[in-house]
Computed example of a mutant assay.
Amino acid sequence: MSGRIMALTGAVAAAVVALAVLGARGDADTALVFAPSSLAPFEAELDAALIESGIGPVEWVFAGSQSLVAQLIDGAPADVLITADAVTFARANAAGVTWDDGRDLVANRLVLAVAPGNPGGVASLDDLGRSGLLVGVCAPEVPCGRLAVATTDGRVTIDADTEEKNVRALTTKLAAGELDVGLVYRTDARAAGLETIADATLRQATTAYRGSANPDGAAVLASFRSGAAHAVLLEAGFLDVTT
């Protein structure tokens, strides 16, 4: 059975996570995988695929990509790093906490997701500028937030009611009806059973997930690149990449 550590934020939380990560290193044969929170809904399927392939089990640390990189810079151990965009990966690479220049694994697309029943009557991306709606986005330093800013720039000005530190937190609030609408990844929306509103602008709003691994995590990363883990993600709605 694999294990999971949900990375937290703040100085105290960082210390707690660091201790938990060190504890996860008890089995030297178990790869420790730092992965973005958007992969967390598919943990069970990924576990099964890796174990069936003779690669797993693995230990997971799920968090926003920027938090994962911060943990590594602070000295946390890991065998695999996967980020939800190239910008965050480049930051990790520049800080010397990756093992190579990385490879693109899969891609994801931003979607306009609404609370159950679409109580705000959202019909398009333009509605994000309408007063009276409870709107959520990811924080601009987070990959999904950075993509949202780039996508809506020049189209609509968003007065967000919340800026979440990871896409899973935003999806959870939408599913609970705490928000009317939000910009999340399509895989998170699908996993949560959220309705999405089609908008032509979002067809090109994609981000590539990039990864790097040390020798102990190489087989895991290879599976994400073109093996059983890759197949799980495609089935979940991630997009294939050719780079």
Rank of each mutant, 00 (worst) to 15 (best):
M1D: 11
S2E: 10
M6W: 05
T9H: 11
G10D: 03
A13R: 12
V16F: 08
V17T: 15
A18S: 15
A18M: 15
L19N: 14
V21K: 04
L22M: 10
A24E: 14
G26Q: 04
A28T: 13
T30H: 07
L32M: 07
V33L: 02
V33D: 06
F34R: 05
S38A: 12
L39I: 02
L39Y: 15
L39A: 08
D47S: 04
L50K: 12
I51H: 11
E52K: 14
S53T: 03
G54T: 07
I55R: 13
S65H: 11
S67F: 06
V69N: 03
V69A: 05
V69M: 09
A70R: 13
I73P: 02
D74Y: 02
P77H: 11
P77D: 06
D79V: 10
V80K: 11
L81A: 05
L81C: 03
L81K: 04
I82A: 08
T83H: 05
A86Y: 01
V87A: 15
F89I: 03
F89P: 03
F89V: 03
F89T: 08
A94I: 01
A94R: 14
A94H: 02
A95T: 14
T98D: 03
W99D: 12
W99T: 15
D101T: 13
D101P: 00
V106Q: 04
N108H: 12
R109Q: 15
R109V: 09
V111Y: 06
L112D: 00
A113V: 06
V114I: 05
G117R: 09
G120T: 09
G120C: 07
S124F: 05
S124A: 14
S124E: 03
L125R: 02
L128N: 00
G129S: 11
S131M: 03
G132S: 01
G132H: 10
L133R: 01
P140W: 00
V142Q: 00
C144W: 01
G145D: 07
G145H: 03
V149Y: 01
V149C: 00
G154F: 07
R155Q: 02
V156Y: 01
T157Q: 02
T157R: 01
I158F: 00
A160P: 09
D161H: 14
D161Y: 05
T162C: 02
K165P: 00
V167H: 00
L170H: 04
T172L: 11
L174Y: 08
A175F: 01
E178A: 12
E178Y: 02
L179W: 13
D180K: 06
V181K: 08
V181W: 08
G182N: 04
L183M: 10
Y185G: 14
R186P: 00
T187S: 14
D188V: 03
R190M: 10
T196Q: 07
T196Y: 10
T196G: 07
I197Q: 11
D199E: 09
R203S: 14
T206S: 06
A208S: 09
A208N: 12
Y209H: 15
R210H: 11
G211L: 10
G211P: 06
V220L: 10
L221F: 12
A222P: 00
S223Q: 10
F224D: 04
S226A: 15
S226H: 13
S226Q: 13
A228W: 12
H230C: 04
V232I: 12
V232Q: 13
L233V: 09
L234A: 03
L234P: 07
A236L: 10
G237M: 13
L239Y: 11
L239T: 06
T242W: 14
